[in-house]
Simulated assay, not measured.
Amino acid sequence: MAKLHFYYATMNAGKSTLLLQAAYNYRERGMHAVILLAELDDRGGKGVVSSRIGLKAEAVTFGQDTDLFECAGALDQERKIDCLFVDEAHFATAAHAWQLARVVDELKIPVMAYGLRSDFMGRLFPASAELFVLADEIR
Protein backbone atom coordinates (compact mmCIF):
# COMPACT_ATOMS: atom_id res chain seq x y z
CA MET A 1 0.00 0.00 0.00
CA ALA A 2 1.40 3.37 -1.04
CA LYS A 3 1.89 6.02 1.64
CA LEU A 4 2.80 9.68 1.85
CA HIS A 5 5.85 10.14 4.08
CA PHE A 6 7.05 13.50 5.37
CA TYR A 7 10.58 13.69 6.76
CA TYR A 8 11.38 17.04 8.33
CA ALA A 9 14.44 18.40 10.11
CA THR A 10 16.43 21.59 10.55
CA MET A 11 18.77 23.04 7.97
CA ASN A 12 21.99 21.07 7.50
CA ALA A 13 20.54 17.97 9.21
CA GLY A 14 21.18 15.74 6.20
CA LYS A 15 17.70 15.53 4.65
CA SER A 16 19.00 15.58 1.07
CA THR A 17 21.62 12.98 1.93
CA LEU A 18 18.92 10.67 3.32
CA LEU A 19 16.78 11.23 0.23
CA LEU A 20 19.67 10.43 -2.09
CA GLN A 21 20.50 7.28 -0.10
CA ALA A 22 16.88 6.09 -0.20
CA ALA A 23 16.58 6.78 -3.94
CA TYR A 24 19.85 4.93 -4.52
CA ASN A 25 18.51 1.93 -2.60
CA TYR A 26 15.49 1.76 -4.90
CA ARG A 27 17.64 2.04 -8.01
CA GLU A 28 20.12 -0.53 -6.73
CA ARG A 29 17.24 -3.03 -6.58
CA GLY A 30 16.29 -2.29 -10.18
CA MET A 31 13.37 -0.08 -9.23
CA HIS A 32 12.51 3.28 -10.76
CA ALA A 33 12.81 6.20 -8.34
CA VAL A 34 11.97 9.72 -9.50
CA ILE A 35 13.18 12.80 -7.62
CA LEU A 36 11.27 16.09 -7.81
CA LEU A 37 12.83 19.43 -6.91
CA ALA A 38 11.41 22.96 -6.90
CA GLU A 39 12.87 24.84 -9.85
CA LEU A 40 13.91 27.74 -7.61
CA ASP A 41 16.33 25.45 -5.74
CA ASP A 42 19.45 25.45 -7.88
CA ARG A 43 22.11 25.01 -5.16
CA GLY A 44 23.43 21.86 -6.84
CA GLY A 45 22.71 23.14 -10.33
CA LYS A 46 19.48 23.23 -12.29
CA GLY A 47 17.62 19.95 -11.79
CA VAL A 48 20.23 18.47 -9.46
CA VAL A 49 19.75 17.40 -5.85
CA SER A 50 23.05 17.47 -4.00
CA SER A 51 24.27 17.00 -0.47
CA ARG A 52 27.16 18.65 1.31
CA ILE A 53 29.06 15.35 1.37
CA GLY A 54 29.14 15.19 -2.43
CA LEU A 55 26.23 12.91 -3.30
CA LYS A 56 24.04 14.10 -6.16
CA ALA A 57 21.33 12.95 -8.54
CA GLU A 58 19.27 14.39 -11.35
CA ALA A 59 15.78 15.60 -10.53
CA VAL A 60 12.68 16.68 -12.38
CA THR A 61 12.01 20.32 -11.53
CA PHE A 62 8.60 21.83 -10.85
CA GLY A 63 7.29 25.35 -10.58
CA GLN A 64 4.58 27.01 -8.54
CA ASP A 65 2.00 26.28 -11.26
CA THR A 66 3.02 22.67 -11.94
CA ASP A 67 0.38 20.07 -11.15
CA LEU A 68 2.41 17.35 -9.44
CA PHE A 69 -0.39 14.80 -9.88
CA GLU A 70 -0.36 15.33 -13.65
CA CYS A 71 3.45 15.40 -13.70
CA ALA A 72 3.71 12.11 -11.79
CA GLY A 73 1.02 10.55 -13.95
CA ALA A 74 2.85 11.47 -17.16
CA LEU A 75 6.20 10.23 -15.82
CA ASP A 76 4.53 7.01 -14.62
CA GLN A 77 3.11 6.46 -18.13
CA GLU A 78 6.64 6.73 -19.57
CA ARG A 79 8.05 4.27 -17.05
CA LYS A 80 6.38 2.85 -13.97
CA ILE A 81 7.46 4.81 -10.88
CA ASP A 82 8.21 2.71 -7.82
CA CYS A 83 8.75 5.71 -5.54
CA LEU A 84 8.49 9.47 -5.90
CA PHE A 85 10.89 11.59 -3.83
CA VAL A 86 10.49 15.32 -3.20
CA ASP A 87 13.49 17.29 -1.95
CA GLU A 88 13.07 20.69 -0.26
CA ALA A 89 9.32 20.02 0.00
CA HIS A 90 8.83 23.25 1.94
CA PHE A 91 9.37 25.13 -1.36
CA ALA A 92 6.23 23.47 -2.74
CA THR A 93 2.79 25.00 -2.31
CA ALA A 94 -0.08 23.81 -0.15
CA ALA A 95 -1.78 22.71 -3.38
CA HIS A 96 1.28 20.63 -4.26
CA ALA A 97 0.94 18.76 -0.96
CA TRP A 98 -2.64 17.84 -1.86
CA GLN A 99 -1.49 16.76 -5.33
CA LEU A 100 1.12 14.48 -3.75
CA ALA A 101 -1.62 12.93 -1.62
CA ARG A 102 -3.54 12.22 -4.84
CA VAL A 103 -0.43 10.58 -6.32
CA VAL A 104 -0.45 8.17 -3.38
CA ASP A 105 -4.19 7.57 -3.28
CA GLU A 106 -5.00 7.43 -6.99
CA LEU A 107 -1.77 6.41 -8.72
CA LYS A 108 -0.68 4.14 -5.84
CA ILE A 109 2.86 5.55 -5.93
CA PRO A 110 4.65 5.96 -2.59
CA VAL A 111 5.83 9.55 -1.99
CA MET A 112 8.68 10.53 0.31
CA ALA A 113 8.87 14.28 0.89
CA TYR A 114 11.80 15.86 2.71
CA GLY A 115 11.89 19.42 3.96
CA LEU A 116 11.90 22.02 6.67
CA ARG A 117 9.05 22.38 9.12
CA SER A 118 9.19 26.13 9.64
CA ASP A 119 11.03 29.28 8.68
CA PHE A 120 13.53 31.16 10.86
CA MET A 121 10.65 32.87 12.69
CA GLY A 122 9.01 29.60 13.60
CA ARG A 123 6.18 29.86 11.06
CA LEU A 124 5.20 26.68 9.27
CA PHE A 125 5.82 26.65 5.54
CA PRO A 126 2.46 26.24 3.73
CA ALA A 127 3.45 22.93 2.11
CA SER A 128 4.87 21.62 5.38
CA ALA A 129 1.67 22.50 7.23
CA GLU A 130 -0.37 20.53 4.68
CA LEU A 131 2.08 17.62 4.74
CA PHE A 132 1.67 17.40 8.51
CA VAL A 133 -2.07 17.03 7.94
CA LEU A 134 -1.93 14.68 4.95
CA ALA A 135 1.11 12.46 5.54
CA ASP A 136 0.55 8.84 6.52
CA GLU A 137 3.93 8.82 8.25
CA ILE A 138 5.85 11.75 9.72
CA ARG A 139 9.45 11.56 10.94
Rank of each mutant, 00 (worst) to 15 (best):
A74Y: 09
G30R: 14
E130G: 03
R79Q: 15
L107P: 01
L68N: 04
K108M: 07
A92S: 10
F62H: 08
R29S: 15
E106P: 00
G54E: 13
E78V: 15
L19T: 02
R102T: 00
D105R: 14
M121Y: 08
G122W: 02
Y114V: 04
A74P: 02
A135K: 13
Y26H: 14
N12Q: 03
D65I: 11
F69L: 14
L84K: 10
E88Q: 08
R139S: 09
W98L: 12
H96Q: 10
D136Q: 09
H32F: 07
A113K: 08
A92V: 01
D119S: 03
T17Y: 04
R123H: 06
D87A: 09
S128R: 13
L18Q: 14
L68S: 07
M1P: 04
H90V: 03
G54P: 06
R139K: 10
L36T: 00
D136Y: 05
E106V: 11
F62E: 06
F91S: 00
M31W: 11
D105C: 04
D105V: 05
A127R: 02
G54M: 07
V60A: 01
E137A: 04
S50I: 10
D82W: 00
H90K: 05
G30Y: 11
A57T: 10
A129D: 07
P110N: 11
S118T: 10
L55R: 11
A57S: 15
I109Y: 04
A33M: 05
A13R: 04
L40R: 12
P110A: 12
V49R: 04
K80F: 06
L36P: 01
F69M: 11
A101Q: 14
W98M: 03
M121A: 11
M11A: 13
L100Q: 07
Q21P: 00
F125A: 01
A23K: 14
I81Q: 03
L116Q: 10
V34K: 05
F69H: 06
N12C: 02
E130Y: 13
H90S: 13
L20N: 07
G63S: 15
R29Q: 14
I53Q: 12
F120Q: 04
L75T: 05
A23Y: 06
R29Y: 00
E58Q: 10
L131A: 05
F69T: 02
R79L: 11
E39W: 01
T66D: 03
A94D: 04
E28T: 14
A57P: 01
D105I: 02
I109N: 05
T93R: 08
F62T: 08
